[in-house]
Amino acid sequence: MQPTCDCCSNLAVVHETIVVEGRRSEVHLCAEHAAERGYLLQGDGDSLLPAGLPLSKLLKKSAADPAAPAVSSTSARTPKACSSCGMTMASLRETQLVGCAECYRALEEELAILIGRTQEGATTHAGRHPMHAAKLIDRAAVRNRLTRDLREAVSREEFERAARIRDEMLALSDPSEAQ
């Protein structure tokens, strides 16, 4: 059985594994949402290639998991679920409600896509935070800035600069956070 799109209930035709800082996450998109996110559908749709140079491809080169496939058009899998409350993206689509705080960690990339759609493209908090989160915040803020810079460097095809930023991101990630 093929998984459904991260953004709607249609069958996904694009399947991508993104590795950022040694953490893998999967993206599944239907033709419509794939096109919206910059994937180019070639021919009659059975061969799919990302348009231009995707961020994920660049990240993958120096990332910890070189075996991760960039694009595979067939991949049977069990749907990812939150280990704490059991929520899947499919059940979220039905109820429109996230199950628990852990969902946001377990399904971070999937939720980021959904959040971007409901929040005019924003996926990063820029406001107040509880005192207990102060330490987390600073690192996250730096990481966010670096991610933005990296995207900019890639879009301008400044690959040396991109590689430098990439190294900075690797140095920033806390080893205790890696899975």
Partner: peptide
């Protein structure tokens, strides 16, 4: 909000901010 936070721990994520049941409220929750 700051006073409440001294006796109750809020669910918070470094990237998404204050966590809410609906993604339309996430972040500031305001």
């Amino acid at each position: 909000d700051g006073a409440i936070e001294r006796s109750l721990e809020y669910a918070f994520h470094p990237r998404f901010g204050y966590l809410t049941a609906c993604t339309t409220n996430v972040g500031t929750g305001i």
